[in-house]
Design a protein around this nucleic acid. Structure first.
Lengths: 120, 120
DNA sequence: GCATAACGCTACATTATCTGTAGCAAACCG
DNA sequence: CGGTTTGCTACAGATAATGTAGCGTTATGC
């Protein structure tokens, strides 16, 4: 059993507003969510391979995220084992691809930018 | 002072690999990061207004995220007060705009999708 | 059949992080 | 001066993540 009977995913906090974007932002804003989606962007990975890809993150969180991502319909467990993106999940991932280029640009801009507070 | 002297931002875990995308994914994958960026997409907000916009999230995390986001160069504290996106931050936010449409589509697809495990 | 190994997944103590409420010092308003 | 708002911090209690171990199941080799 994947979870205790009657237990539902923590019900995305921000989704109390009913706005889907909030639910999505909340789901993706959990540890390893984005990373998992990212690592799955190519071919499917077994739970263990995914763990390796994610810097050996603890199986506890990974499993939790995987369950949430599966309930959201972004990820699925293939017949023969191994996790992969659904069509929907692939769509979502497309959204993040520009992030890659952005990250490179960002890195190039400033290794350790200045903070500009006003306290003082 | 914004932080204790000598204290640095928790040094993004996944960025140990040196790949900027990992650092970015890690930063954005923290609670409220995405949400803050999202709420700031329009006009600048005071810390308190931002808090309201974020379902009254605790000022502790918000402040922590704001500091990280500022160090990353995505957010800045305006001269006259109020947080806003930098040019870079606006760029990043652009990346997430398609997410809005995606979220709507996602919501329409399935309120509570089926899990397809293989245990049993 | 029996050992070996890999699979998805879970337990659990420790540690890190977030929540919620209260409140401070500085700047602004009159 | 008193009142209000700003950015920001403290701190106890609640929640979530880490790290390590291991379960039950399903191949595979002999």
């Amino acid at each position: 059993m994947a979870k205790k009977p009657g237990t539902t995913t923590p019900r995305v906090r921000a989704s109390r507003s009913g706005r889907p974007i909030m639910a999505l932002l909340d789901l993706l804003g959990r540890r390893w969510s984005l990373r998992i989606l990212w690592e799955l962007r190519g071919e499917p990975l077994t739970s263990r391979a995914l763990r390796s890809a994610c810097d050996e993150a603890s199986p506890t969180v990974l499993q939790a995220r995987l369950t949430e991502l599966r309930e959201a319909g972004f990820v699925e467990l293939g017949e023969g084992g191994g996790y992969g993106l659904t069509a929907l999940g692939r769509d979502l991932c497309e959204t993040f691809m520009p992030l890659h280029r952005f990250a490179e640009r960002w890195k190039a801009l400033s290794p350790s930018p200045r903070l500009r507070g006003r306290s003082g």
